[in-house]
Amino acid sequence: MQKWKEKAVKLGLLGASSTSILIVLLIFFYLIKEALPFALDPGLSSLSGSLWAPTSMLKESFGILPLLTGSLLVTAMATIIAIPVGVIAAIYISEIARPAEREVLKPFIELLAALPSVVIGFFGLVVFVPLVKSVFGLSTGLTALTGALLLALMAIPTIISISEDAISSVPSSYKQASLALGASKLETIFKITVPAALSGIVASITLGIGRVIGETMAVLMVTGNAAVVTMNPLTSVRTMTATIAAEMGEVAFGSHHYRALFWVALILLGITFALNILAQKALSKYKLG
């Protein structure tokens, strides 16, 4: 009787923990199922164009190039801003700040990660958009750069938090050996500590990029949402996430436009999935050694 109960409990718990796999599979299955018919009609080649005009009265066009470049541009700029800022702040917190200072800084910066993205988007709208507009003398502040600034802000706590963990877990014997050789504290940090923590830092950056590329609300609110192929940071762009959020509510169920949006989602999921695998690889490396 008791043995029977033990087995039932174990089975139940096993079932519960399988739901994670189940959900992942269902997500992939559902996205593919809704996207697939598009490959037959109108065909995948129509995704490759450089015009995204899914509701055009003249001719519908589903070129996802502008969405890809939009996401790429915003993500790349956000990454370029967030990496140095995040890593430097992580260095300060783990290696330079006094212990009491560290105890305050870390949770305070982690508050940033807890802010809902719609709040950050709102803040961007009322503060960054006018700022970008006046600094660069533009007609509108709704630009790729504005989006990138917000996204950088959202990636920074991820980068700081994980990098800081990696840097502080570098054995102090390394640092002492370096200091004993007459290296200054700064030389030790940049030549010994940071290289030793590199795989953790790489993981933090990868996870940060993953968060940025999948972020929806903030970019939707501040990038202006013009679907054009551009690498100019001071123009409006439209990212993949923003496209889905803005258009899915209005499409006809089962239409070409509907299925094209699922392709966008599928590509997005593929990118974040690959980034996640990379991050896990880097993380397991740093946890091992």
Partner: peptide
């Protein structure tokens, strides 16, 4: 599965 789920963009959850 768990780490993949953690990385799925929120808009994809919406879809």
């Amino acid at each position: 599965g768990i780490s993949t789920l953690a990385g799925v963009p929120s808009i994809v959850f919406g879809l």
